[in-house]
Write a protein that binds this DNA or RNA. Sequence first.
DNA 1: AGCCTGCTTTGATCCTGATCAAGGAAGACG
DNA 2: CGTCTTCCTTGATCAGGATCAAAGCAGGCT
Lengths: 248, 248
Amino acid sequence: MALMSPKLSPQDCGECPIRFQAVCSRTEADELARLEKIKYYRSFQAGQMVIWSGDRMDFVASVVTGIATLTQTMEDGRRQMVGLLLPSDFVGRPGRSTAPYDVMATTDLVMCCFRKKPFEDMMAATPHIAQRLLEMTLDELDAAREWMLLLGRKTAREKIASLLAIFARRYTGLKQLATKGAVAFDLPLTREEMADYLGLTLETVSRQMSALKKDGVIFSEERRHIVVPDFDLLANETGDDTDGGLVG
Amino acid sequence: MALMSPKLSPQDCGECPIRFQAVCSRTEADELARLEKIKYYRSFQAGQMVIWSGDRMDFVASVVTGIATLTQTMEDGRRQMVGLLLPSDFVGRPGRSTAPYDVMATTDLVMCCFRKKPFEDMMAATPHIAQRLLEMTLDELDAAREWMLLLGRKTAREKIASLLAIFARRYTGLKQLATKGAVAFDLPLTREEMADYLGLTLETVSRQMSALKKDGVIFSEERRHIVVPDFDLLANETGDDTDGGLVG
DNA sequence: AGCCTGCTTTGATCCTGATCAAGGAAGACG
DNA sequence: CGTCTTCCTTGATCAGGATCAAAGCAGGCT
């Protein structure tokens, strides 16, 4: 079933929404042309598994649109999300043949894929790809370490606020910075997925969301739609250094 | 004070204990010769800070001998260790100028350093270095994600067992695999450092260590020295998949 | 020797978040 | 239209680990 994703018509890399952020962003015209020849798209519906942990994985890919999750599961069923893949993020590791995590599409998802072998060959030949991949991997490592602080030391309320702040920042970046601190967005995760990401139970997530609502930090009529009236208010709940340490 | 580390006499890379694991491990003779010319050693005493979060960091380095920790601190003092640097591990990020974490020597430490600029130049010129660095960074990312599972979902006892298993495995690798499951090693961390790594308090660490001792999973007369009579017994306490999922 | 100081252990109590349980809201589908 | 299913909320209770507190141990120093 998971393999019956509809084939998309090949799309011009020049039009690609992640052209300047993805692993290909540094490539020169000729390099990109070669990549373009070996790429193929796959799309997944919300809720579909992209790959199961332990499965053979003979491709690497960039997320073009949509959101996917990386999750680890223990024998007894405890689950921890270890990564959230947003557009331009990269999945798969050159030089490894089985998937270390479950990858699931949480929204409808389009991925730009390369079979592993040709991609590895390209990487050996074009340092621009390896360079960008190193940079992206270092960024992910930083993000993972920030998440370690969240998982190890933050309270439930701080965890929720931190996650909301991440989404808020993301959507603000795209939309208005104008509205003087107000942001609105749709949560791309269920309560359970949020819990798996934050190391909580879904009940605790729900309760803390209610508490933040009660305290006026967020508003939300339609379950998944979040309005943050004042971003600074939310930021103050994350436990993070508020004003980046710079002189005022 | 932290800068008064004694200068070491230059050492031949051919003799280097981390020659085949570190970031330089893939370099050819001529590349290594060039690296050798720009390297310099720094050593630190146990307890000394290598660098403070936010400080300017104009070098990158490999750990040659000893152990260092990467730690993040919140304004109110909550601390989370986000990495443990063992021999051959790499610190510092090409293309970044300030340290994102506190780095502390927890044992006496020797690092092989390169000023950032010359190292970046070398990296651009010799793909072998960038390749190895990418590989090491991907490994660290995997380790960070495994730690996320530990921090988010494991119980205190499982956390302690997991940490002990890591050290046990590390020392076993170096010493005998012979003794049929028995391993012994010295803990390189204080209870407080263990707590910071595991997202616990030092009291909980102490209590769980006592519990594991009471249950015969570990023995220890001299505070820091740990004897694991049966590694499998310890492994069963970690919560991890015991037998790697392969056919028996 | 005697006194610090840093590290560790152990006890008593508290509290945050987990667990168990029930019910509500909204969309899918017969 | 009613029923199912999925997702979410809220309540009651429990428990694992945090917090507060005290004391033990070992090494270093005078």
